[in-house]
Structures are given as structure tokens and as C-alpha cells.
Design a protein around this nucleic acid. Structure first.
Lengths: 251, 251
DNA sequence: AGTACATTGCGTCATAATAACACATTAATG
DNA sequence: CATTAATGTGTTATTATGACGCAATGTACT
């Protein structure tokens, strides 16, 4: 795979890559999709290169799709990372040897790569984390238990989460991270997890319903201990409207 | 200049550039610093390339500094643009001929360039728009009267302004765009110009002073028709604190 | 000198949004 | 059938916001 790209590096945008921070929500926890190539000892964000005949946004969609199998989800560019040292020593001679890449061609990889960060919000339950015929492990990992990552991927992940926190004030976020039917407490847990702080149940309900994007269903969650919470769904039409106009105006 | 870069293109990050949207405020109008190389008929954003031994943020500072002469101002990356067609046909064979660039070397420029957008907020009064020994015209242009720009620079400019509008809710902005001493009405005009809407005088005063970053000076503006408005300055310490903690929390 | 005028500074009031909290309701459990 | 740990609904005090009224100020004009 990598070798293919190197052998045909004239078909790819040089010195530029894409890394995706893919968020999901499960068991009241915010998860991040991470990958590990088999021989490596560190995890990394799913990433890829940019075909010269593809828009960068399209290339990002390809990366996301190849790792999650889903289409049409929330995907957003949030920052570009280009420190000189960011991938220094990553592909050293030893690594190239291991990958059976000729030194001359390997130079393409040993230079500084600038990477464009995208973050995605996906419905955890619809994702099959096992990729199609790749030599790698793909796993959902709790965002609070992310192990050491390669290069500056930790920085990229942190920046993605910061951006998500800020955008939480500009748009309703649950639509992309929750299954079709969900309860208010679940939605609240999602917000609490992203913001990393407790919110008041009563006030949360009022504020979230006042936005006017939720539809109360005639159905209750089953198989729960204690009182069964009501199920809700998003009103897609009104949701899109709010997305367009923005949430908190401020001025 | 450009020829130098092409002749030494191995010293620069390939296929990647930087474009800066430099905002200033003057005569109650939001201005953008644009440049025009002498033979061209369209204006463009000041931009540059990225030395392989420089962080992209550093390269952006260099671009800003070479065009404005100022240092230490507000500069922020806001988006990266990478459509396949974005600079298609820009450097065609004819252009290369004109610039006396060999076709083989010119290929470096004819490929798709991805550009990283930065926007800057600078104190109009401190800028000398005449660059050091460059073959170009540099001018402040009212953001409402920006002429046709090259490539997708119009899109980049619009995106910068959108970002600025959003960030206005997250941070106090005047500090970077106004001279040290200013009046509340001036600050209000700045906000109105950026947001492109009228604000109520009385409510603006209350809201802006409640933030707690303004110091009322014992001085009034002179040489004005009608009642002389009071002068204010920013309390740098509190300003930095607010910048760090954010303005409108939302949740 | 006195008045008109545009603009600033300060204040009021009704309404909306927010934060903090009390209490009744529900369904599984032992 | 009482216990328990949740959810659903309501109340109140406080604060923020939006829409105004009116006096104060300094220049310009007669």
C-alpha cells in the first residue's frame, strides 16, 4: 500500500497528507478511531495521501470511508499542521529498509510532511472498525485513554477536540454522533463528555428542546434499570436550518 | 524573486503556499491589504512559499512581515484550500515564457498548489504598505470594494471574514485593529463593519465595558465635530486573560 | 452671544435566558 | 410492596438582552 504510493509518488500531492480524527460515542464515552500497523508499537490517526487529481476534501472523504465504511457523515477540516520537526526521523533509513523501499524513492517520504487535519462525527453503531484488507488494527479507543501516538498526532487530536468544543456552541452536534432514536440523558452525557463538565439535567432539557430540533417520540427506552426515559429523534429539516443559521449569535 | 524560488525549488515545500488576509481598520471601514504585480490585471492576496526548514506558522509571519513591516501582531491560520482546479491554468506556458522560466522547471509551479490561509489583524496606522524592493503595488482596499482577484483568492478572503465574524464572539478583537487610544464609538463602528449590521449605542457600551478589558482614560478626543467622546485603552493584562478563557461560553 | 444640531453619556423598563433547586413519577429490585 | 435510582415537570431569583428616553457637550451658524 505505502510502497505503491511511493512507487507512483508523482500521482500524489507531494509533502502533504491528511489525518482524520474520527469521533464516536458509545457507553457514555467519547471514542476515537485509532489504527496501528502491525509491527508498530504506537497508535496513530487514520490518514492518507492526496491524489493530484482530487480535491483535498474528497481525499479526506476517501480516508474516512476506507476506515469506517460510512458515507455522508459530518466531516470538517479544522487545522493544518506543518512544523519542521513534526515528522522528523519518522521514515529513517532503517524503516525504509524494512519496507523494502529504495533510498532514492524514499526521499519522497523523509521530507517534512504537512498534514491537513479533518475531524469526523460518526454514529458508533454503524461503523465496522475492521478495514478492507489492510495490514493494520483499527480500534475505538476512549478519548481519555488514548495511548502514546506517533509524530504529533496527539497534538492533532487535542486540537480537534478543542475545535469540537467550540463548535458545540455554534451548532447542534448530537445528530451525527447518536443513533436515530436516543434519550435526553444520553444526549446530555454526550455534551458532558465533550465539554468535560457536569450539566444540570433540568436546565439542559429546557435549553436543548428550546432549540427546536428534537422530536419527542411516543416510545420509551426498554430494558433499563429504573424509570424508562423517553426516546427522541432529530427533526432533520429544522436541524439543517439551525446548522445554516448558527446557534449562538453573541453579538 | 519568483524565478529565484523556482531555480531553487528544492529548498521550498513543494505544492504548498501561504496566503494572508490582512485586515486593517481606517475611516470607519474594514480594509484588506492587496497586492498587484505590475504586469498583472488582477489583484491578489499577499502570499509566499514555505522554506523546507521553516514551520508553516513561521513562513506566514515572514509573509506578513515582508508586506507590512510589523511584527508581533495577531496572526491565525483559518483554513487550507486545495481544490484541484484552484490554480489550474494559472502558470501556463505563456506566463512561463514571459517570466523567462524554463518549461522543465516551470512544472513545479504548474501543478496544483494547496494554500494555507492565515488572517491577520493589524493596526492600520502602523503599517507602511510599500514593500521593500518588490516589483508590486501594495494597497489597502475597502473590503466592500475588493475587485476581482486571481485564482480562488476571493473565496479565501470570504472565508477569512466568516472566521473573523465567528471569532468575534469568542474573543475581543479591537485590540489588534485599533490604535492604542480609541473611543467607544470607533470600537462600535469596527464591530458593525465586521458584522455588517447596526448595533445599539447604549447596549454596545454596556456589553463591551462589562467584559472588563477597557480602561477609561482621562482624556477626550479632540478636533471632532460635536460632543467629544472619551478615549479608552485596552487593559492588556485582562485582555490576555479573556483571550485565554474565551468570551461566550454557551454551555 | 445665542441657538440649532449632531453626537455622546447615562439611565430605565420589559422581556428573555440562565442557574439553582424542590418535588412528583416511574419501573426494576429484593 | 417498600426501596432505589433514575426521569419528568415546575418555581424562583438572578442576570443578560433589546428597545427606548433624555440630558450633556462642543461645533457651526445666524
Amino acid at each position: 500500500m505505502l510502497k505503491d504510493i511511493i512507487d507512483n509518488n508523482e500521482n500524489y500531492q507531494p509533502g502533504l497528507s491528511i489525518d482524520c480524527v474520527i469521533f464516536g460515542f458509545h457507553d457514555n464515552q467519547l471514542k476515537v478511531l485509532l489504527i496501528k500497523v502491525e509491527r508498530a508499537n504506537k497508535w496513530s490517526l487514520p490518514g492518507g495521501f492526496i491524489p493530484i487529481d482530487q480535491d483535498i476534501d474528497t481525499a479526506a472523504i476517501t480516508v474516512l470511508n476506507s476506515r469506517t465504511g460510512v458515507e455522508g457523515v459530518f466531516l470538517r477540516q479544522f487545522a493544518t499542521f506543518g512544523k519542521v520537526k513534526r515528522n522528523d526521523q519518522h521514515f529513517d533509513k532503517k524503516t525504509l529498509d524494512y519496507l523494502q523501499i529504495e533510498e532514492e524513492k524514499g526521499k519522497w517520504l523523509m521530507r517534512r510532511f504537512v498534514t491537513i487535519g479533518y475531524y469526523a462525527l460518526v454514529d458508533f453503531s454503524k461503523i465496522l472498525p475492521n478495514p478492507t484488507g489492510r495490514n493494520e488494527i483499527v480500534e475505538w479507543i476512549d478519548h481519555k485513554e488514548v495511548p502514546e501516538l506517533i509524530l504529533d498526532h496527539r497534538e492533532i487530536l487535542d486540537k480537534a477536540l478543542d475545535t469540537l468544543r467550540i463548535e458545540l456552541n455554534l451548532m447542534p452536534v448530537g445528530y451525527n454522533l447518536l443513533p436515530e432514536k436516543f434519550t435526553i440523558p444520553e444526549l446530555q452525557k454526550l455534551y458532558e463528555t465533550i465539554l468535560d463538565k457536569k450539566l444540570d439535567r433540568r436546565n439542559f432539557l429546557r435549553k436543548i428542546t428550546n432549540i427546536g430540533i428534537l422530536t419527542k417520540l411516543d416510545e420509551k427506552k426498554s430494558n433499563v434499570a429504573h424509570k424508562a426515559p423517553n426516546l427522541y429523534s432529530f427533526d432533520k429539516e429544522k436541524y439543517d436550518e439551525v446548522l445554516k443559521n448558527g446557534l449562538n449569535q453573541g453579538w
